[in-house]
């Protein structure tokens, strides 16, 4: 979380709030589905759970148009370079949600094939637990991320581990 405790000035505060508000409510996720969690991610976006309520339902096929990457599923050693490349192609500012146990820590598959946590490859803003996390969990993660953006600063440097 943004641990800024200094009392900000009137003008800058207002601008920051405005920008954050805009960013919060128009986040477009990149459709980066990998495994089981991708199914639940699709389920979250579908009619029953309706992610559109939070302004996040526009899953973009191109990473250029997306500012949120939901890493939904296990990341293999072979997929890690691809994942990083997709992340690099996204425009700033960008956020990453690590969805599920596999993406967050390797989950139950602690073996040669998997990257043990996607945070070794890209910086992660929010971890959503579960195997797979249900739509409610993912929505909770997304709302928490929105809150984090709302409370954060405009300037943030990403892309560097």
């Amino acid at each position: 979380m943004a641990g800024v405790s200094k009392e900000p000035g009137f003008l800058v505060t207002t601008l920051e709030k405005g920008v954050n508000w805009a960013r919060t409510n128009s986040m477009w996720p990149a459709s980066f589905g990998l495994a089981c969690c991708a199914i639940e991610m699709m389920g979250t976006g579908a009619a029953h759970n309706d992610l559109a309520r939070f302004g996040m339902e526009v899953f973009r096929a191109s990473p250029r148009q997306a500012d949120l990457m939901i890493v939904a599923g296990r990341v293999s050693q072979k997929m890690a370079p691809v994942l990083r490349q997709v992340y690099d192609q996204m425009a700033e500012p960008k956020w990453v949600i690590s969805m599920g146990a596999c993406a967050s820590s390797g989950g139950m598959f602690n073996n040669y094939a998997l990257v043990q946590g996607v945070d070794q490859v890209v910086p992660v803003d929010m971890y959503v637990p579960g195997c797979p996390p249900g739509p409610q969990s993912l929505m909770h993660g997304i709302l928490s991320l929105q809150q984090q953006i709302m409370d954060g600063e405009i300037r943030r440097s990403t892309g560097v581990l």
């Binding site: 820590s105 390797g106 602690n110 073996n111 040669y112 094939a113 043990q116 946590g117």
Partner: peptide, 8 residues
């Protein structure tokens, strides 16, 4: 070939 488990 080891499983390749690493402490998380």
């Amino acid at each position: 070939f080891a499983v390749g488990a690493i402490p998380v």
